[in-house]
């Protein structure tokens, strides 16, 4: 019985939250890694792209809500995601046209594009704050729990409850669908394959008649979709605050690099590695150990390895360890 209780507590406080957070990071990292593979630079504006795209989703959600549209038990935001994606895609394509394209034509080195992306980051950040403000926004509605702790206790007769927030379930399911579509696109469509070809060998792609501008445009559109879905899921699951999205940049970069930057499979794996390590190291294990250990060995403290504020430190240490042992990341990266 104690073992079951321990398992439920573990699932409730560690596995489920980490799975949801990992899905969000994976989607973010997939976007970063695609830009790295195709446009060959790390996009510092990615966190703010997520923020601004999610902002459009939120505004659309509010509009739908005020029109009385709802999805019943599901959050209305799911209906608003296409608007967010459209908004982000327009913004990214416009940015590419006005900003990035010039440097491609100049054959600027990728590092220059990184600095350019800092400028874009400032602008997106300012725009988001200008339009929706720097504060917390709530936009989740619908059913809060798929399984509530109380129902679970009544059903199982255990002391420990298992709560599954609907946003967590939605996050994982949506992430699986989106990732499956992206991978199918990359490996089974002519355009997807041309993206991989361009990423692998730009000159040869040109010789094969692949248009770089088309590849770049398609990439930005996919990135917009990934960023908005990741941002909206994160906002639903936790909360929407522009600055938090900016701060997600570090775990997202860490996920992409841990997995092997440039490798889509790596980005997914990296997202989960980072999420699970963050949660495992910052979770207070007292409860779980309380069920497992005999009375005499009961811990006094919280048995928390690190305070939650150190979650960035965890991403970072995992990153360093992976780089020391396997400098190319878990899935040899650098091309799609």
């Amino acid at each position: 019985m104690d073992l079951l209780n321990a398992l439920v507590a573990l699932a409730n406080f560690v596995l489920i939250p980490a799975l949801a957070y990992g899905s969000q990071l994976a989607l973010g990292a997939l976007g970063v890694t695609l830009i790295y593979a195709v446009l060959r630079f790390s996009n510092f504006a990615h966190g703010d792209t997520m923020a601004i795209g999610t902002m459009v989703t939120i505004l659309a959600t509010w509009a739908l809500q005020s029109l009385g549209v709802s999805l019943g038990p599901l959050p209305t935001a799911l209906l608003a995601i296409p608007f967010g994606i459209a908004g982000a895609a327009v913004l990214l394509l416009l940015t590419d046209r006005v900003v990035y394209r010039f440097y491609r034509a100049q054959k600027a080195k990728p590092v220059i594009l990184v600095i350019v992306s800092m400028g874009v980051m400032f602008i997106y950040n300012g725009m988001t704050r200008f339009i929706i403000g720097p504060d917390d926004q709530s936009f989740a509605d619908g059913e809060r729990f798929l399984i509530s702790a109380r129902d679970f206790k009544a059903w199982s007769g255990l002391d420990e409850g298992l709560a599954l927030k609907s946003t967590q379930a939605i996050t994982v399911v949506t992430a699986i669908i989106v990732v499956a579509i992206v991978f199918w696109f990359l490996t089974h469509t002519r355009t997807g394959k041309s993206m991989r070809a361009y990423s692998d060998n730009e000159d040869l792609a040109l010789l094969s008649g692949i248009s770089p501008e088309t590849v770049v445009r398609v990439t930005w559109i996919i990135v917009a979709a990934l960023a908005v879905v990741a941002g909206t899921l994160y906002g639903l699951d936790k909360s929407y605050k522009p600055f938090t999205y900016f701060q997600l940049l570090l775990p997202i970069f860490a996920s992409a690099i841990v997995g092997g930057i440039g490798s889509p499979v790596g980005a997914i794996a990296g997202g989960f590695v980072i999420a699970f390590s963050e949660v495992l190291f910052t979770y207070a294990w007292k409860k779980v150990l309380g069920y497992l250990l005999p009375e005499t060995l009961q811990p006094d403290g919280l048995v928390q390895l690190l305070s939650t504020d150190y979650k960035f430190a965890v991403s970072f240490v995992i990153l360093i360890i992976v780089l020391l042992f396997r400098p190319t990341g878990l899935f040899r990266g650098k091309s799609v």
């Binding site: 060959r40 630079f41 440097y103 600027a108 080195k109 590092v111 730009e202 650098k334």
Partner: peptide
């Protein structure tokens, strides 16, 4: 010359060294 060179930067965490165009435009 120009301002768009990389100043010898070889940081793979931000810039992808693989697969780029080497051709003379």
């Amino acid at each position: 010359t120009g301002g768009y060179d990389d100043r010898g930067n070889r940081d793979v965490s931000i810039a992808n060294p693989a697969g780029g165009s080497a051709a003379h435009p």
